[in-house]
Amino acid sequence: MNLTLKVWRQQNAQSQGGFETYSVKDISSEMSFLEMFDVLNEQLIHEGKEPITFDHDCREGICGACSMHINGQAHGPWHETTTCQLHMRAFKDGDTIVVEPWRAAAFPVIKDLMVDRTSFDRIIQAGGYISVNTGNAQDANNLPIAKDKADESFAAATCIGCGACVASCKNASASLFLSAKVAHLALLPQGDAERKTRVLNMVDQMDKEGFGACTNTGACEAECPKGISIMNIRRLNAEYLRAGLSGSIAR
Protein backbone atom coordinates (compact mmCIF):
# COMPACT_ATOMS: atom_id res chain seq x y z
CA MET A 1 0.00 0.00 0.00
CA ASN A 2 1.02 3.62 -0.49
CA LEU A 3 0.59 6.07 2.34
CA THR A 4 0.96 9.75 3.18
CA LEU A 5 2.53 10.55 6.53
CA LYS A 6 2.31 13.84 8.37
CA VAL A 7 5.00 13.68 11.00
CA TRP A 8 5.96 16.15 13.73
CA ARG A 9 9.54 17.32 13.32
CA GLN A 10 11.33 19.31 15.99
CA GLN A 11 15.10 19.74 16.19
CA ASN A 12 15.35 19.98 19.98
CA ALA A 13 13.51 21.09 23.10
CA GLN A 14 14.16 24.76 22.40
CA SER A 15 13.07 24.91 18.78
CA GLN A 16 9.60 25.33 17.32
CA GLY A 17 8.36 22.17 15.70
CA GLY A 18 6.03 21.61 12.77
CA PHE A 19 4.53 18.92 10.55
CA GLU A 20 6.33 17.57 7.49
CA THR A 21 4.62 15.45 4.86
CA TYR A 22 6.17 12.30 3.41
CA SER A 23 4.96 9.52 1.19
CA VAL A 24 5.93 5.87 1.50
CA LYS A 25 5.32 3.21 -1.13
CA ASP A 26 4.88 -0.57 -1.22
CA ILE A 27 4.25 -0.99 2.48
CA SER A 28 3.19 -4.56 3.23
CA SER A 29 0.36 -5.25 5.64
CA GLU A 30 2.64 -7.63 7.57
CA MET A 31 4.97 -4.84 8.66
CA SER A 32 4.76 -3.33 12.08
CA PHE A 33 4.14 0.40 12.34
CA LEU A 34 7.74 0.99 13.37
CA GLU A 35 9.04 -1.11 10.48
CA MET A 36 7.12 1.23 8.22
CA PHE A 37 8.99 4.07 9.94
CA ASP A 38 12.26 2.20 9.33
CA VAL A 39 11.41 2.19 5.62
CA LEU A 40 10.70 5.92 5.72
CA ASN A 41 13.93 6.60 7.59
CA GLU A 42 16.02 4.58 5.12
CA GLN A 43 14.37 6.62 2.37
CA LEU A 44 15.27 9.90 4.12
CA ILE A 45 18.86 8.77 4.66
CA HIS A 46 19.17 7.94 0.95
CA GLU A 47 17.99 11.45 0.18
CA GLY A 48 20.72 12.74 2.48
CA LYS A 49 18.21 13.96 5.07
CA GLU A 50 18.00 13.40 8.78
CA PRO A 51 15.79 10.46 9.74
CA ILE A 52 12.93 10.87 12.21
CA THR A 53 13.88 10.33 15.83
CA PHE A 54 11.57 8.18 17.94
CA ASP A 55 11.88 6.04 21.07
CA HIS A 56 11.71 2.26 20.75
CA ASP A 57 13.65 -0.74 21.97
CA CYS A 58 12.00 -4.09 22.65
CA ARG A 59 9.45 -3.93 19.81
CA GLU A 60 7.47 -6.50 21.77
CA GLY A 61 5.12 -4.22 23.69
CA ILE A 62 6.87 -4.60 27.02
CA CYS A 63 9.63 -1.98 27.52
CA GLY A 64 7.29 1.01 27.22
CA ALA A 65 9.73 3.01 25.09
CA CYS A 66 7.63 3.53 21.96
CA SER A 67 5.29 6.45 22.22
CA MET A 68 3.59 7.78 19.12
CA HIS A 69 0.33 9.63 18.95
CA ILE A 70 -1.22 8.26 15.75
CA ASN A 71 -4.25 9.88 14.14
CA GLY A 72 -5.20 11.43 17.44
CA GLN A 73 -4.83 8.25 19.48
CA ALA A 74 -2.00 7.30 21.80
CA HIS A 75 -0.36 4.18 20.24
CA GLY A 76 -2.83 4.29 17.34
CA PRO A 77 -6.10 2.55 16.54
CA TRP A 78 -5.70 -0.96 17.98
CA HIS A 79 -7.07 -1.62 21.45
CA GLU A 80 -4.51 -2.55 24.14
CA THR A 81 -1.63 -2.36 21.69
CA THR A 82 1.63 -0.42 21.81
CA THR A 83 2.91 1.42 18.74
CA CYS A 84 5.52 -1.28 18.13
CA GLN A 85 2.88 -4.01 18.09
CA LEU A 86 0.53 -2.10 15.84
CA HIS A 87 0.71 -3.66 12.37
CA MET A 88 0.02 -2.13 9.00
CA ARG A 89 -3.04 -4.36 8.59
CA ALA A 90 -4.71 -1.56 10.52
CA PHE A 91 -4.40 0.80 7.53
CA LYS A 92 -5.37 0.77 3.88
CA ASP A 93 -3.90 1.98 0.63
CA GLY A 94 -4.09 5.76 0.22
CA ASP A 95 -4.49 6.54 3.93
CA THR A 96 -3.00 9.69 5.43
CA ILE A 97 -1.54 9.09 8.89
CA VAL A 98 -0.76 11.91 11.31
CA VAL A 99 1.98 11.15 13.84
CA GLU A 100 2.80 13.34 16.83
CA PRO A 101 4.77 13.00 20.05
CA TRP A 102 3.10 12.71 23.47
CA ARG A 103 1.85 16.20 24.38
CA ALA A 104 2.16 17.09 28.06
CA ALA A 105 3.99 19.79 29.99
CA ALA A 106 5.67 17.13 32.13
CA PHE A 107 6.90 15.31 28.97
CA PRO A 108 8.90 17.95 27.03
CA VAL A 109 9.90 17.01 23.48
CA ILE A 110 13.57 16.07 23.10
CA LYS A 111 13.56 15.65 19.33
CA ASP A 112 10.85 14.87 16.76
CA LEU A 113 8.67 12.16 18.32
CA MET A 114 10.88 11.55 21.34
CA VAL A 115 9.91 13.02 24.70
CA ASP A 116 11.46 13.22 28.16
CA ARG A 117 9.62 10.95 30.61
CA THR A 118 12.04 11.11 33.53
CA SER A 119 9.24 12.65 35.57
CA PHE A 120 7.87 9.09 35.87
CA ASP A 121 11.16 7.92 37.39
CA ARG A 122 10.99 10.74 39.92
CA ILE A 123 7.47 9.71 40.91
CA ILE A 124 8.82 6.21 41.63
CA GLN A 125 11.74 7.72 43.56
CA ALA A 126 9.21 9.45 45.80
CA GLY A 127 8.04 6.13 47.18
CA GLY A 128 7.25 3.52 44.53
CA TYR A 129 9.18 0.74 46.24
CA ILE A 130 9.37 -1.38 49.35
CA SER A 131 12.29 -0.41 51.56
CA VAL A 132 14.06 -3.72 51.91
CA ASN A 133 17.82 -4.02 51.65
CA THR A 134 19.43 -6.96 49.91
CA GLY A 135 19.83 -9.82 52.34
CA ASN A 136 16.93 -8.80 54.60
CA ALA A 137 14.47 -11.30 53.23
CA GLN A 138 12.83 -14.26 54.91
CA ASP A 139 11.96 -17.48 53.09
CA ALA A 140 9.57 -16.60 50.29
CA ASN A 141 6.91 -19.13 51.28
CA ASN A 142 6.75 -17.86 54.87
CA LEU A 143 4.47 -15.21 53.51
CA PRO A 144 1.47 -16.81 51.84
CA ILE A 145 -0.49 -14.39 49.67
CA ALA A 146 -3.99 -15.22 48.48
CA LYS A 147 -3.97 -15.95 44.77
CA ASP A 148 -6.62 -13.35 43.92
CA LYS A 149 -4.67 -10.62 45.72
CA ALA A 150 -1.42 -11.69 44.06
CA ASP A 151 -3.13 -11.74 40.66
CA GLU A 152 -4.67 -8.30 41.18
CA SER A 153 -1.34 -6.90 42.30
CA PHE A 154 0.32 -8.45 39.25
CA ALA A 155 -2.28 -6.94 36.93
CA ALA A 156 -1.45 -3.48 38.26
CA ALA A 157 2.28 -4.20 38.09
CA THR A 158 2.12 -4.88 34.34
CA CYS A 159 2.10 -1.12 33.63
CA ILE A 160 4.95 -0.44 31.20
CA GLY A 161 5.42 3.22 32.09
CA CYS A 162 4.80 4.38 28.53
CA GLY A 163 2.86 7.53 29.35
CA ALA A 164 -0.05 6.93 26.98
CA CYS A 165 -2.42 7.60 29.86
CA VAL A 166 -0.95 11.08 30.28
CA ALA A 167 -0.93 11.74 26.55
CA SER A 168 -4.58 10.81 26.15
CA CYS A 169 -5.83 12.75 29.19
CA LYS A 170 -7.08 16.26 28.53
CA ASN A 171 -5.60 17.30 31.90
CA ALA A 172 -2.35 15.40 31.28
CA SER A 173 -2.82 13.62 34.57
CA ALA A 174 -0.49 10.76 35.56
CA SER A 175 -3.08 9.23 37.85
CA LEU A 176 -3.40 5.88 36.07
CA PHE A 177 0.36 5.32 36.06
CA LEU A 178 0.71 6.36 39.69
CA SER A 179 -2.33 4.41 40.84
CA ALA A 180 -1.03 1.25 39.20
CA LYS A 181 2.11 1.45 41.32
CA VAL A 182 0.26 2.31 44.51
CA ALA A 183 -2.14 -0.60 43.91
CA HIS A 184 0.63 -3.06 43.04
CA LEU A 185 2.32 -2.43 46.38
CA ALA A 186 -0.71 -1.77 48.59
CA LEU A 187 -2.31 -5.07 47.63
CA LEU A 188 0.64 -7.02 49.01
CA PRO A 189 1.38 -7.56 52.70
CA GLN A 190 5.02 -6.58 52.06
CA GLY A 191 3.87 -3.12 50.98
CA ASP A 192 1.83 -2.44 54.07
CA ALA A 193 4.43 -0.80 56.31
CA GLU A 194 4.97 2.18 54.00
CA ARG A 195 1.47 2.30 52.62
CA LYS A 196 0.51 5.74 53.91
CA THR A 197 3.66 7.74 53.29
CA ARG A 198 4.07 6.10 49.89
CA VAL A 199 0.82 7.38 48.48
CA LEU A 200 1.21 10.87 49.94
CA ASN A 201 4.76 11.30 48.68
CA MET A 202 4.05 9.97 45.24
CA VAL A 203 1.01 12.19 44.74
CA ASP A 204 2.99 15.13 46.02
CA GLN A 205 5.71 14.44 43.45
CA MET A 206 3.16 14.07 40.64
CA ASP A 207 1.86 17.55 41.42
CA LYS A 208 5.38 19.00 41.50
CA GLU A 209 6.13 17.55 38.07
CA GLY A 210 3.28 19.53 36.55
CA PHE A 211 0.86 16.69 35.75
CA GLY A 212 -2.80 17.71 35.88
CA ALA A 213 -5.56 16.53 38.17
CA CYS A 214 -7.82 13.57 37.42
CA THR A 215 -11.39 14.43 36.46
CA ASN A 216 -12.48 10.86 35.75
CA THR A 217 -12.93 11.05 31.99
CA GLY A 218 -11.63 7.51 31.55
CA ALA A 219 -9.56 8.33 28.45
CA CYS A 220 -6.48 6.85 30.12
CA GLU A 221 -7.98 3.41 30.58
CA ALA A 222 -9.33 3.39 27.04
CA GLU A 223 -5.89 4.11 25.56
CA CYS A 224 -3.69 2.16 27.97
CA PRO A 225 -1.88 -0.54 25.96
CA LYS A 226 -1.78 -2.85 28.95
CA GLY A 227 -5.39 -2.59 30.02
CA ILE A 228 -4.56 -1.07 33.40
CA SER A 229 -7.94 -0.67 35.08
CA ILE A 230 -9.32 2.68 36.19
CA MET A 231 -10.36 0.86 39.37
CA ASN A 232 -6.78 1.51 40.42
CA ILE A 233 -7.50 5.25 40.51
CA ARG A 234 -10.39 4.60 42.83
CA ARG A 235 -8.07 2.57 44.99
CA LEU A 236 -5.52 5.39 44.87
CA ASN A 237 -8.10 7.89 46.06
CA ALA A 238 -9.11 5.60 48.91
CA GLU A 239 -5.47 5.08 49.89
CA TYR A 240 -4.87 8.81 49.77
CA LEU A 241 -7.88 9.60 51.88
CA ARG A 242 -7.03 6.92 54.38
CA ALA A 243 -3.45 8.19 54.71
CA GLY A 244 -4.66 11.78 55.08
CA LEU A 245 -7.24 10.88 57.71
CA SER A 246 -4.70 8.98 59.75
CA GLY A 247 -2.68 12.18 60.01
CA SER A 248 0.30 10.94 58.00
CA ILE A 249 2.11 13.69 56.13
CA ALA A 250 4.29 13.67 53.07
CA ARG A 251 8.00 13.70 53.84
Partner: peptide
Protein backbone atom coordinates in the same frame (compact mmCIF):
# COMPACT_ATOMS: atom_id res chain seq x y z
CA UNK B 1 14.69 -11.09 47.97
CA UNK B 2 12.35 -10.55 45.03
CA UNK B 3 9.28 -11.52 47.02
CA UNK B 4 10.32 -9.13 49.80
CA UNK B 5 10.54 -6.35 47.18
CA UNK B 6 6.99 -7.06 46.10
CA UNK B 7 7.56 -9.04 42.91
CA UNK B 8 4.12 -10.60 42.26
CA UNK B 9 5.10 -14.14 41.25
CA UNK B 10 2.37 -16.61 40.27
CA UNK B 11 0.76 -18.38 43.24
Amino acid sequence: QCVAQGVPFAR
